[in-house]
Computed example of a mutant assay.
Amino acid sequence: MANIIRIAAALLIDPQGRTLLVRKHGTEAFMQPGGKIDAGETPVQALVRELHEELGLAIDPDQARYLGQFSAPAANEPGFVVQAELFRVDSAATVTPAAEIEEVQWLAADQTATLPLAPLTRDLILPLYREAVSAPH
């Protein structure tokens, strides 16, 4: 059985349709904002807490639309698999890197990411995001 890290992650989308990627202190890979789900927390509660801690973002849990569960090798913990409960959050609020976040980067759907990306972001979430924003409304 693989070592699993359970997280809640946000596909955070701004009014221009860009998505936010974050990089933690001392790491190279960019990934979705979010973090580990604490004992007794629901995924959406963890998401609300993490977005507030990491980006100073106050979201209403009802704003978060559940997209599904995704798994991939963890970017920063070799031998671990990250299992993400992914939510789409549309927000026009300004984000401010805080807590362990060192850098934030907005990425447009048609922009090729030249940044190093976490496997989950690169292989699963960005393709889903590009499909979501290019889909006819």
Rank of each mutant, 00 (worst) to 15 (best):
H137P: 07
I4H: 05
A135F: 12
N3D: 12
A98N: 09
V48G: 00
L107V: 12
A84V: 00
A132I: 15
A74V: 02
L115M: 05
L20R: 12
L51E: 02
P73G: 00
Q69I: 08
V89R: 08
E53F: 14
A132E: 13
Q45R: 04
L20D: 02
D90Q: 08
I13E: 08
R49N: 05
R88S: 11
L115D: 04
D38F: 08
G26R: 06
Q32R: 07
G68F: 09
R6Y: 01
L11S: 07
H25P: 00
Q69V: 15
L57V: 11
E54W: 04
M31C: 09
D90N: 12
A46S: 04
L67V: 04
I7E: 01
T96F: 02
Y66K: 08
V44P: 03
G40V: 13
A92L: 01
A135W: 09
I4R: 03
Q45C: 03
Q32E: 07
F80H: 10
A99Q: 06
L124E: 15
D110F: 07
T94L: 14
F87V: 04
S91E: 06
I101Y: 01
A58G: 13
G34L: 10
A58R: 15
W106R: 05
Q32S: 07
R18K: 15
G17F: 04
T19R: 11
F30A: 05
E41W: 01
E41S: 04
I59Q: 03
E28N: 11
Y129K: 11
A74S: 12
L128D: 11
L117F: 11
I5E: 09
G26M: 04
V133F: 07
L51F: 11
E28W: 08
I125Q: 09
A135N: 06
K24L: 09
A46Y: 05
N76W: 12
K36L: 07
A75P: 00
T42W: 01
A135I: 02
P43Q: 00
M1V: 04
E53P: 02
P73W: 05
Q45S: 08
